[in-house]
Amino acid sequence: MIHARGLKRSFKTKEGVVEAVRGLDLDVAEGELVAFLGPNGAGKSTSVRMLTTLLPPTEGAASVAGHDVLREADAVRRRIGYVGQGAGAGGYNKLRDELLTQGAAQRMTGAAAARRADELIGMLELTGLERRTGMSLSGGQKRRVDIALGLMHSPSVLFLDEPSTGLDPHSRANLWEHIVKLRKSTGMTIFLTTHYLDEADQMAERVMIMDNGQVIANDTPERLKANLAGDRITIDADNAIVAAEIAANLPEAREVVRDGARVGVTVKGGEAVLPEFIRALDQRGARVLAANIRRPTLDDVFLGLTGRSLRETAT
């Protein structure tokens, strides 16, 4: 559904040429929900804007829904829904009017647009707001209108650029719910960018981590966490020296740290390793006082890959 090869984009600024995207290769199959995760300035939006025909790439090629983004831009535009970073809901126009305008822009007939507008107003819980202007809506409502606008012509691919940035936690959760529901009911291909770790983790079937204009990891959230971060086991034992020795010998053990009576170790598949750990301690006559497994987050993955925390860079 989405393919890109060697996609590059640089911008000229006063300070010189900035390479925002440095060679993006991308394949998204029909029906996938893929998230681009990365800090601000990683090149996520620039990538999306190239895929949605808004920005010509400096180098490389991309096709969306079977059409080249440069040579067949109009065909791409007919097949995609694009929800940009800004609130596209509009200021002075009434919500339902704006949906109808969007329908007309997407070459729908008036009757089809009216039907679809009412359907989306119901689906995205916008009933009662039809005659309100864009600027009178709350942040969460605006975002739902933006999504409705992107969905008017039932596109085959929906691009969402930072859909929940700036929303309060409640509105964010509500928005996710809508996106997940939409995904289930339509099987639409969804490509979203986010700098929220939990958003990528909970919603996406596949996460591409982007940093500095490049994709540095690409897998399901589970596999990324298991392969690149692992589970952190901590054990308090009456003989921590023995515990640390055992920990170091566990399969694929990393980052063994002893701090007083506490020993920490990072392993793959913590649930299976922990009983083994405890049994080994038993056999050596050490008594376990407390045990804990911490599942990794995508932030641990990002930290492992870049040495930086995404939480610090995210704003």
Partner: peptide, 17 residues
């Protein structure tokens, strides 16, 4: 300018209009 900044124009530019 307002619509350029808010993203409204961009929304139309991503349509076949």
């Amino acid at each position: 300018t307002e619509e350029l900044m808010s993203g409204v124009l961009e929304r139309f530019l991503a349509t076949p209009m």
